[in-house]
Nucleic acid binder design. Structure first.
Lengths: 389, 389
DNA sequence: GTGAAAGCGCTAACAG
DNA sequence: CTGTTAGCGCTTTCAC
């Protein structure tokens, strides 16, 4: 199909000549390269091509692009020049085949509507990128075993797996351990001793919120839970309820918001329609708290912070918007992601590292969505914080 | 370093025996496999291993995992069984080395704070995933030539590049064309004939907003621009201004919000502080419109929709929240992403396809953040739409 | 410091 | 349909 024509361009004939002069070059390859110039079917430029142009061995080219390899300045010069001229880019996929490291991190996230997730992804991308890793994104369904997706991830030979707000089946955990793949959960815990995890301080945060609401004189407390299957929501509920119990309060009312806007809105509706509605609602995360605020205002004509107190968890960007001014316990996402990256890299360097469960403390950021107690307020770095005592 | 010891486990000895029986197996490999069982340094299982266990050739294994290859049911059975037993997963990276297709799509996004971006990414991930592609994420700085990042992307041999809300340097466009890499811009246009693009209907949307505000009886109009360098913001401004000019209105006031929250808030502040402040502000996107609403309410005590009209562009999830109830021209992100994916796949199948610039129409979704004209309202599928006769 | 050669795990002709 | 063979583009001993 491909034919060598006589009136090829100058560059082409030069190429062919130089190739013919190359002893180890087989005819098949020559044809290919000739064909390239004829029908425009461009073959990506390889280290071989660069080597040829630079008049060095292919390994010299490789060394030039491999940090920590020893090449003379002269060779490096020649190679670099040739590479630029040809527009050469090392093929990372080929590299990873031999090094056994893809420099790719698999990240799963259950959608991005919740700002906490998008902020997490943003940080993950940025910080991993600084460390020389790229992120391959996998969307999952919330509250669903993502094993089939994870199965996919592994085929790409990711160097590590970061699961944001989703749990790890024990089956899959074993699988990962077997192949020596580091797994880190972000914003969710695991009882498997295989994966590491980084979470906010769910127990103490929820406890602080309980104390804050009690100190504010609230009488009828409620909790809007996230996904029942989520360790995060359970921990927050536990922290909240156990504090209340310890202080002699009745168990809080309860509704389930599943971490979704609609579901949380419905939960709020239900709570506020009761004969004795709550005077304070603690939502398992900011996203649901914002839904609650929307519903309380638009459907129940309540003035949030006066007739009703609403508190969230996360301190996402939206919480600080004046329109919401949400009081919430913060999860310092940037710090948390820093920890995740650190754990991943450490594990990659030292395979024998035990898994660790890290808890990153936050603070109760006070704004105006909930009545403010008379005492306990502090101003730290310009943000209003509350703490008991 | 590795030594063959005599008391290896049963599995190990069996393995070694079977390997020795394998003629083309070199001793190096035998040592490696033996070593694996000794020091626990697990070598990922390969098609070779599966072939051995199944008693077939390695290509038979490959074929069973390559769709469209012909394998007898019997062979497939044997292979599948062996693969499962060993926990075999084909190495996509190795595959792409030979097929020349990585099944990876590079996606760049300028941060995820703006919900439009996160929604776009979400859709991209979902829809590409359904088509068998994975997304590699690259965060970029807004309004910055992302060439260095793109340089990185190419090293991973992505099959295509999707740039969300960022422009393509002509230098890089050439580069991409040379290597035959499809590039699609989402939410931004390009004058280069190399890349394709999918955008909302910026001109007509902005025009409709102009008409809507005029019909609502507004007198002093203002525009808050996005990044000056963005085609999107320029097109919207042009549509807006030219409509006003055609109707004999003065040119709208103008401030720059750079698509960022803080910057848009500052722009709003500036506009509303003027001696003759605007009675209607059209913001180049929803994110800035929300900033404007926050500022108008909290700092100027205005009742949005009464004292002041604020209109956005995108119709993101937040726009529909009762607290904002933002009137905005919609960009059907799902449809837009569908188009992007379609273009990418078509181009991948047919390299000679010309680049195309697609415009996806939206509609003016009317809520309560702007005064509503006496005529022109329609109810379509439960949403309130406005259009000039 | 440098080139030759082996091979990472896989697919794709090619004979049978 | 099946096994054999030849690489995909790269890194890494190993001699020199």
């Amino acid at each position: 199909m491909h034919m060598l024509v006589s009136d090829t361009s100058i560059e082409t004939s030069e190429l062919i000549t130089s190739i013919k002069a190359w002893p180890s070059m087989n005819t098949q390859r020559v044809k290919k390269i000739a064909a390239q110039s004829i029908d425009g079917e461009r073959r990506p430029v390889t280290a071989h091509d660069v080597a040829k142009l630079a008049g060095v061995s292919q390994s010299a080219v490789s060394r030039t692009f491999t940090k920590g390899a020893s090449v003379s300045d002269e060779t490096r010069q020649k190679v670099t020049r040739a590479a630029k001229e040809l527009g050469y880019r090392p093929n990372f996929l080929a590299r990873s085949l031999i090094t056994g490291r893809s420099k790719i991190i698999g990240v799963t996230i259950p959608g991005l509507s919740n700002q906490f997730y998008s902020a997490a992804l943003d940080s993950l991308s940025t910080i991993f990128s600084e460390a020389g890793y790229r992120i391959m994104l996998f969307s999952t369904m919330p509250d669903e075993t993502s094993d089939p997706i994870l199965e996919e991830v592994l085929r790409y030979r990711v160097d590590a797996l970061v699961l944001v707000s989703s749990s790890l089946s024990s089956h899959f955990a074993d699988e990962c351990q077997q192949i020596g793949l580091p797994v880190v959960l972000l914003n969710r815990k695991t009882n498997s001793k295989i994966a590491s995890s980084v979470t906010g301080d769910n127990r103490n945060g929820a406890k602080a919120i309980g104390a804050f609401l009690v100190a504010g004189g609230h009488q009828r407390l409620a909790y809007i839970a996230g996904l029942e299957s989520s360790s995060t929501s359970r921990d927050r509920e536990k922290g909240f309820s156990s504090y209340l119990a310890a202080k002699g309060f009745a168990a809080p009312m309860r509704a389930v918001g599943n971490y979704s806007y609609e579901s949380a809105a419905a939960a709020t509706r239900e709570l506020l329609s009761r004969k004795a509605p709550p005077d304070a609602i603690f939502c398992a995360n900011d996203y649901m708290a914002l839904a609650a605020i929307n519903v309380a205002r638009s459907e129940f004509n309540l003035t949030v912070g006066h007739n009703i107190s609403i508190v969230g968890f996360d301190d996402t960007e939206l919480a600080a918007w004046p329109t919401f001014s949400l009081t919430t316990y913060s999860q310092p996402i940037r710090t948390m992601v820093d920890r995740v990256v650190r754990i991943v890299i450490d594990t990659l360097l030292n395979k024998e590292m035990p898994s660790i469960q890290e808890v990153v403390p936050g603070q109760l950021v006070v704004r105006e969505s909930a009545r403010i107690p008379a005492i306990g307020m502090k101003l730290i770095d310009g943000v209003r914080i509350w703490s008991s005592v």
